[in-house]
Nucleic acid binder design. Structure first.
Lengths: 337, 337
DNA sequence: CTGTTAGCGCGTTCAT
DNA sequence: ATGAACGCGCTAACAG
């Protein structure tokens, strides 16, 4: 098995020094004479030379890798964000190393450690923080260690880690949604809240409840459950069983849950939006063609990913910035007459 | 800015040699005395030491990175595959570096080069091959270079690159779909074929047409277009305009296009499956809750990703193996009476 | 069991 | 403009 050609191989073949070969092949500022430059380039081509980035990173003590950690790539929310992160990183000449945690905070901490070991240039963390202050502190400690030796980090989520953060406006978005739905005439609401420990879910639930309260409307029925499609399905069934007729509008704290809820209601023969209106959150592109079209709160997912990369790569700390959420009324909610 | 602690720092602090520190901290087979081992571990903890993987890779000349290249992470097909690849790689102790090509063969070749530069342990390529033999040859050359120096590679798609490949059974799946739909009584079909240059699209179209032909049915109306949601939408509109009434069943060569087609038909007031039946391909999990539920051909997406990782990491070449496609009849297609 | 030392492939002064 | 030599952080003989 022939080994990869090295810079030294190229230098020898071209009859120049290692230093010269390095200068022509890897963007040095130094100039190299036309003649030698040509010979080096030809030798490199003949040998199929590719610079060994691990060695280069070591010598430069600076890698060209960006670390990304998400909960779950098969969740369209993260798929969208990851896609944008990969593109943005590419524009900066960086490759992306991804890790998935499946909402396990330990795994998240572990993956940050892995990325630190790789000495990646920057880390982008996407996804809701845990409500547990202890794990949050440990994650923060791990990130601080990374940043302590020159690493940069940015976050998409709640501003809890002391790094530059893109904060999706969950609270305000849900609040505005509540107001919009109230304007449609609804007064009796239910919220499929997702799991108690997820801050994103909690923020959305709280914002929605606040919106109702500020309008003098009764508090919504709260039904917890997993943050995914099946969780929404189960929660909707539970709602039907316990509060069958009182509620006219249900808010699932994310689109994927809303889809599950829609399926459950359909399965139970409940007309949407005829008898019950349904709303979600995120505005997942892939889900825009549902029937009935889902009322939701749009988050600029791709933009958030792009922005996080810029923050992570930016020269100096930028603090937290909000990602505006916008209510999108569609057919799954209707006005009460 | 303090630099990262190095093995040498740890060794000094623990009062042992570099080699000893290396042995206790990085899985060497060699044994180290209890006392020294403890001191090293404590020193490492105090210093917040993490092994520098770039340096480790260089010294071992073996990295622990797996390269993955997909067309588009925001496409649920690839999101699903990528997710499985990341998990499977994790089980082998490898981190994943992803690249997205957005169906640009040049970008694909370029990304393989990047991964080769990283000296990744293995590369998994997912996504339809181009029908252009020239670019395929260049990609193949790049992969051969990678494999020539000990790299391993596996592919998900058409078996065209001379590496271990998981081949989705597009042809047979589409053929079976055609037969199933014919059994429902349909005789006049249209196929939204996707772009001419995409082999996956071509295989599915061909398989479907063959199925019809073998049954003595007339050839389907063929409408090309982009491989995405909007492509399906446009193609369906075109179909309506040109062959409004003849066709009773349309096959979109992937689910995402089928969704677009469904939307277009709905927009035109055409009842599905009342007047026209619609079928897709892939069985994207996120799309299972559409109304009407989409008839499609299921591909074991996650399994395919997992399998590709295993092939790529396997000791010796395994050749090509098929991923069985299975017809799933749902509500978007109905029997003609 | 433990320590010494020579690389792994490349970047970068420092001379020339 | 070019080359010689050292260092980046770690592994792997080899010696003891």
């Amino acid at each position: 098995m022939p080994r990869d050609a090295t810079l030294e191989d190229v230098a020898r073949q071209a009859g120049v020094s290692l230093a010269t070969a390095s200068r022509v092949l890897n963007g040095s500022t130094r100039q190299v004479g036309r003649a030698l430059r040509d010979r080096v380039e030809q030798a490199a081509a003949e040998l199929g030379y590719t610079t060994n980035r691990a060695a280069q990173a070591l010598a430069r003590s600076a890698s060209d890798i960006l670390g990304l950690v998400v909960h779950d790539l098969s969740d369209p929310y993260f798929a969208e964000v990851a896609n944008a992160v990969v593109r943005a990183a590419g524009r900066h000449g960086l490759s992306v190393m991804v890790g998935t945690t499946f909402r396990d905070p330990e795994a998240e901490i572990g993956y940050v450690a892995t990325l630190r070991a790789q000495r990646v240039r920057a880390i982008v963390l996407a996804g809701s923080r845990s409500a547990d202050p202890e794990v949050t502190a440990r994650l923060r400690a791990e990130i601080d260690r990374f940043q302590g030796t020159g690493g940069r980090a940015a976050l998409i989520g709640q501003d809890l880690l002391g790094v530059d953060t893109v904060v999706p406006d969950n609270h305000a978005g849900s609040r505005e949604l509540a107001e919009a739905l109230a304007r449609l005439g609804h007064t009796r609401f239910a919220v499929l809240t997702g799991p108690p420990g997820l801050l994103t879910a909690a923020d959305r639930t709280a914002g929605f409840a606040e919106g109702l309260a500020s309008l003098g409307l009764p508090a919504p029925v709260l039904i917890p459950g997993p943050f995914d499609r099946d969780g929404g399905h189960a929660a909707a069934r539970e709602l039907l069983a316990a509060h069958g007729t009182e509620v006219t509008c249900v808010f699932a704290v994310n689109d994927v849950m809303a889809v599950g809820a829609l399926a459950a209601l359909r399965g139970a023969g409940v007309d949407v939006p005829g008898r019950i209106s349904v709303a979600g959150f995120d505005d997942i592109p892939t889900l825009r063609d549902l029937t009935p079209a889902l009322t939701t709160v749009r988050l600029p997912l791709a933009e958030m990913g792009t922005r996080a990369v810029e923050l992570a790569l930016g020269a100096d700390p930028a603090g937290a910035e909000a990602a505006r959420a916008r209510v999108v009324l569609r057919e799954s909610t209707r006005a009460l007459t």
